[in-house]
Structures are given as C-alpha cells and as structure tokens.
C-alpha cells in the first residue's frame, strides 16, 4: 500500500462517523425535504406530486401562514434589539474594572442558561397569568391586572420579555469584545480631551461593531426558531387568536398535527430562505457599518 493511500485511508477512518452523519442526517434529508415540499404527503400514502402548489398556496391562500410570519417577525424585531441593547449597556458598566465582576456576570448569565427549559416557560405562564405574580404586585398599588398570556395584544410581549431576560449570553460576548479594545486608544483620546460620551461614540462603538454584528446574526437566527416557550405558554395552540403562532409552531402543527408533511417541508424551505436572506442582508449591509481593522 502506498503511503499516499494509507494516509488517506487513515484520515477517512477518522472522518467516517461525521461523513455518514452528513449523508444520512443532513444531505439526504435536505434533498428529500426539497422533493417533499413539492408534493402532498401524509406519511401513510405515497407522496403526490403538486409542483409549486404548496408555495403558491402559502403565499396566496393561507392566512395562518401570513399570521405566523407576522407574529414571528414582530417578535424578532422587538425582542432582539431590546435584548442586545440591554446586553451592551450592562456589559459597558461591568467592563470598567468593577469589583465582583465574575459574580455579576454569573448572575446575569443564569437566565440564559435556564431560559430554554420547560420549567421557565411554566414559570412565565404563571407569572403573567390572571392570578400571577405580576398582577399580584400590581394589586398592591391598586391596579387590577389582566391575564397577560390570555390577551391577544399582550401575549407575545410576555415572550419578548422572556427573551430580553436572557440578555446574559450576548452580554458575555460583548464583555469579551470590550476586553479586546486596547487601553491606549482611550488614554490618547483622553489626552486629546475627548469626553466620556465622545470616547464611547468614537472608540468603543465602532470597535465593537463586529461583535454587535455577530450577536445580531446569532440572535436573529435563534429568535426566528423560537418554539418551546410559545408552545408551553399557549398550550400548543399558538393562541390566543393566533397571537403566539410562531413560525416553527405553525410548521409543527402542519407537519405533526395535520400530517401535511409536504406543506410542512415547504414551510421549512421558506424558513431557510428567510433566515438565509436575513443573514445575507446582514452581511451585505455590514460593510457600511461594521468596522474591521485592516
């Protein structure tokens, strides 16, 4: 056996599990899903070719799809900027050589670690329920609260709060970014007489734009796929009146309650398109606002 061949064989031996995984669990399913999205399929009878019908129906005759898109977009647009702004603000405060930094960092991070669990979704359901914690507190100052999770106008904002509450992980990323900014920049700016405000706008913010960009892309992608919390808070319905019908919840309902698996596959491809599109826009726009040191 030549050395060349042996080297390749050894390397591919190491690579085999991943390679099989790629074929069986990613590449194969992607192709299958693309095909299924062009069919009607209910898992029991064979797929029935429908061409682009699923996509046409989605964009012209499916009000729940439009609603899901609107609910999710609204959620992403409101929650992600709030979450990142809070994360940045706290990171700036913590970055000034503060005592007990690691304690604060840990406390603020804890909600991010636990926030994805069912337990927290249950807690949220209670806190914003009719006789929940919030209303109890409000009643102390004489305000009679509503059930925040059962009211269509407010339900999605309880979930926005749940995301904002988890600002800890982007905050940690901001803190790591802030540490990279060389101290000399601030020192020479101070010698030039730049005030605190100026230093923030002229030094900190521009040098932090790559991190802001990274956090933004990451959070948009994850926010768009929010499922568990909406499922638990609405009992799987996306209610009240579809106000928490998040995109992935709708996909779940189509695929696994109605068994419209062709349609659900089409929904998945549109989701991929949206996420890919948003990421692309972020990347294209980045050259106008993200500052990279050359």
């Amino acid at each position: 056996m030549s050395r060349e061949l042996r080297r390749n064989l050894v390397a591919y031996a190491f690579l085999t599990p991943w390679l099989l995984g790629l074929l069986i669990f990613s590449a194969g399913p992607i192709l299958a899903s693309a095909y299924l999205s062009l069919t009607r399929y209910d898992l029991l009878s064979p797929p029935e070719w429908r061409g682009l019908t699923n996509y046409v129906v989605m964009f012209t005759r499916d009000p729940r799809f439009a609603k899901a898109l609107q609910v999710t977009a609204n959620y992403v647009l409101v929650s992600v900027p709030l979450q990142l702004a809070l994360a940045l603000a706290i990171a700036l405060v913590l970055n000034r050589g503060i005592r007990a930094l690691s304690l604060y960092r840990a406390i603020y991070y804890l909600p991010s670690l636990l926030g994805g669990s069912i337990a927290i979704a249950i807690l949220w359901r209670q806190v914003f329920g009719l006789d929940g914690l919030i209303n109890r507190a409000l009643s102390l100052i004489g305000i009679q609260g509503i059930s925040w999770i059962a009211t269509p106008e407010t339900a999605v904002y309880t979930l926005v709060l749940l995301r904002v509450w988890q600002f800890g992980s982007p905050m940690i990323i901001f803190l790591a970014g802030l540490k990279q900014i060389p101290r000399e920049f601030y020192e020479s700016a101070e010698i030039d007489g730049a005030g605190r405000w100026n230093r923030f706008w002229r030094i900190t913010l521009p040098l932090l734009t790559p991190i802001i960009f990274f956090n933004l892309v990451l959070q948009i992608i994850s926010a768009f796929q929010t499922f568990t919390q909406a499922f638990i808070v609405s009992g799987g319905t996306g209610g009240p009146v579809n106000s928490t019908l998040f995109y992935t919840l709708y996909l779940y309902q189509q695929g696994f309650s109605a068994f419209n698996m062709g349609y659900a596959s089409a929904l998945a491809w549109v989701l991929l398109g949206i996420i890919g599109g948003l990421t692309l826009v972020a990347f294209l726009s980045s050259k106008y606002w993200v500052y990279y040191e050359s």
Binding site: R7, N8, V10, A11, Y12, F14, L15, W18, L19, L22, F25, S26, G28, P29, I30, A32, S33, L36, I221, Q225, T248, L251, G255, M261, A264, S265, L267, A268, W269, L271, L272, I275, T279
Partner: peptide, 27 residues
C-alpha cells in the same frame, strides 16, 4: 491530517452549522 477533498468537506461542515434543524426534520 491531510487527505483528498479536505477543503470540500470542511466547507460542507461549515455550511451545515447554520442550517435550521427544520429543513431536515420531516425526512
């Protein structure tokens, strides 16, 4: 290690990182 098509596989590996789980879900 060095092997043939390394760059191709590496690019595919990076490509699957951002792939939403839902695209492979139904199949």
């Amino acid at each position: 290690l060095d092997f043939r098509f390394k760059r191709l596989w590496f690019a595919l590996m990076l490509g699957t990182i951002m792939l939403p789980y839902h695209v492979t879900l139904i199949p």
